[in-house]
Write a protein that binds this DNA or RNA. Structure first.
Lengths: 187, 187
DNA sequence: AGTGTAGGCCAACACCCGTTGACTTCGGAA
DNA sequence: TTCCGAAGTCAACGGGTGTTGGCCTACACT
């Protein structure tokens, strides 16, 4: 026994996360993941059953939004943007979801659920009306996911070159408006 | 000869566009495209050489930005958002690029080039300083691509439910700010 | 009517994929 | 020391993929 079962399982999971994050679901092969984890492909099946379940385990994910009820109302946008940037950079989870969610319905559903579920309470706390929460959550998601797309996936040079503080300075007013701004007339 | 060469080539291209748009590069197979075009897979190779060149032909794309120099300065954001929505819905080209650009470097480069090249002149016309153009273009791209991602790819229910006019009402101020707003202090 | 050719089909190739099951090796308990 | 079970390897399977080259076939000309 070279390693304990837990150790190799963790090694496989780490390799899978990296490969899914950079290659997406289709291009990330079990064989390549196995090589990265220095193990035979059949062990991946032994520990995770099949590729789908391996992906599900690798894409486990939460936004980990902090409690913002104590944050001054006019700074909740900046705080949220700052937190999102940290969350993107903490691990590969969001990159995995973005890279695969674009062509994989299961991953897409995961993203939808995560953003809807974790953003809604905050928004309801900020604006009274719960009916506005889904729309405002979608707007926040569009800007945050869009920035992540440009910066970490497509790697737009100017988006990559911007410092975290610059991104915060530009994007915070947008998020603040989507969260607490009054509903504009749709003409 | 059932069809002219031009006709079948066009049929293949149409089928390829649809399949690339819904499935992405890897999952869209030559065989499936051939079936859709009602032709033998080998003909796809005859006309386009290989899958890469077929994709390049299918992903031919331009933003078709209108001339906004005559638009009142304070309405350029709304006009641009309106145009982008129309552009998304006109054909599959942008969906192809988004679905594939996330895992395919060639497509990613295409997106970067298109946004940088076609947005920069407008921005330089609006703000004097050409050095700010790349950053502002990236910000605009982040919001427009993000909204497209949520609305047409991930299909967030609230983003799908919003009318075009609602999207325009919410997003226009953001784009207007990225285009003409003064550079914020990065703290 | 005969024929050249453009348009199309068919079968196969080499390769890679996820997945399976039987076999081997090692380490610790008896 | 023996032995059993856990950890790991190996070779193969069935299927799908991009790609190739030879063959057919129907039309527009002479």
């Amino acid at each position: 026994m070279r390693r304990s079962a837990e150790a190799t399982k963790a090694a496989i999971l780490a390799a899978a996360r990296e490969r899914f994050a950079t290659d997406g679901y289709e291009k990330a092969t079990i064989r390549a993941i196995a090589i990265d984890a220095d193990i035979d492909p059949s062990m991946v099946m032994r520990y995770f059953g099949n590729k789908d379940r391996l992906f599900a385990a690798a894409a486990e994910f939460s936004l980990d939004l902090p409690d913002l009820t104590a944050t001054p109302r006019d700074q909740v946008g900046a705080t949220l943007v700052r937190h999102f940037l940290a969350r993107w950079q903490a691990d590969d989870a969001l990159q995995i979801l973005l890279r695969t969610g674009v062509t994989n319905e299961t991953a897409a559903e995961r993203i939808r659920d995560v953003f809807a579920a974790q953003l809604a309470p905050l928004i309801i706390h900020l604006v009274g009306d719960p009916r506005q929460a889904p729309t405002r959550a979608a707007l926040v998601a569009s800007q945050m996911l869009g920035m992540a797309l440009c910066r970490y996936i497509l790697r737009f040079p100017p988006a990559v070159a911007m410092s975290d503080d610059e991104v915060i300075a530009w994007v915070s007013p947008t998020i603040q408006n989507y969260l607490t701004g009054e509903h504009p007339d749709a003409h």
